[in-house]
Design a protein around this nucleic acid. Structure first.
Lengths: 165, 165
DNA sequence: AATAGGTGCTTCGAATTCGAAGCGATAATC
DNA sequence: GATTATCGCTTCGAATTCGAAGCACCTATT
């Protein structure tokens, strides 16, 4: 295999670091806005948004939520517990499988998402899209979409290709 | 201002989520490799790499380190403390300013970085660059570099543009 | 239909994270 | 040059995170 040197060239390094930095900075900015405007963590927002905006029924099983978000099961239990405590979601055993727990957004949960969205969008626009043209935005998405597919197909929690020591 | 609706179009949303997802998944993969191969967290690796590879002297002030990494001061104190405890860095008061602390990589620290780098590079290549052509890799970097500049210039920890409630 | 194994979620303890408050050291102002 | 503000770092407590272990339920094998 001649084409796999143990180095990243300068272009690759630059892209890699830029990606990680941008995501980190964006996440910080977004988290602060969510905290200020709606008293939500990024994860909580993701969960609520997924339930309120993506799910037709407003409900999902814990496992499906965990798979959507990049997140551990136990962490999910914790965050959903917090959301339930403040009345933004309900939790109930699934009808067809007693093990499963179905999480459902409450009306208050939907309202909270609606409250937070405008500021959220505004931050993302200012931080990320302010410096990207429409074409560049499209290009970015088209570059990253297949990468995401690729990464999701190779589960990150167990696959390091090989493990030494 | 007619060009600032409180919405992100589908293309923007897709790019935004793809970016956050990819970065999150990549970070997971990388953290696992670092843990397995060198018993380092991602932050610790960033710190060591910056000292060992980017700094001519192998030293930096705590504040400069914190600014380079996206990280809180107290978190930095904690992690540098861990690194010092295992002998990968030294910590000493600065000569010119008694308040400052100068952190320096030790020889062991340099070796640790060297140990971890090949696997690290391999993970990044497999997760990220396996699905990107050379041109695409370049394009990604060129898209993100100005974004990073923009974000760094507007400090994320204090600027939410405006805060309600 | 009994047993063995797999699934879905939670509990637990340890580690990591942050912001606020605190402490000396330095800089700025008068 | 004394006082006041600022800076650089650490300590502290609270919150969040994870993986491992545990528990209840479901599925497959016989």
């Amino acid at each position: 295999m001649p084409q796999t040197p143990a180095t990243l060239d300068a272009v690759q390094l630059g892209s890699y670091f830029a990606l990680m930095d941008v995501a980190g900075l964006l996440r910080h900015a977004v988290e602060q806005q969510l905290r200020d405007d709606g008293d939500l963590s990024y994860v909580q927002f993701q969960l609520l948004a997924r339930l309120a905006l993506d799910s037709p029924t407003g409900s999902e099983r814990m496992t499906d939520l965990a798979d959507g978000v990049v997140y551990s099961r136990s962490g999910l239990t914790y965050q959903v517990g917090l959301l339930e405590k403040v009345g933004l979601v309900d939790r109930a055993p699934s009808v067809d499988d007693e093990r499963s727990v179905t999480v459902t957004v409450t009306e208050a949960g939907r309202e909270r998402v609606a409250t937070v969205i405008p500021g959220h969008v505004e931050v993302v626009r200012q931080q990320l899209f302010a410096v990207l043209s429409q074409q560049e935005t499209r290009a970015l998405g088209e570059l990253l979409a297949p990468v995401r597919e690729h990464m999701r197909s190779a589960p990150p929690r167990s696959a390091t290709t090989r493990r030494r020591r």
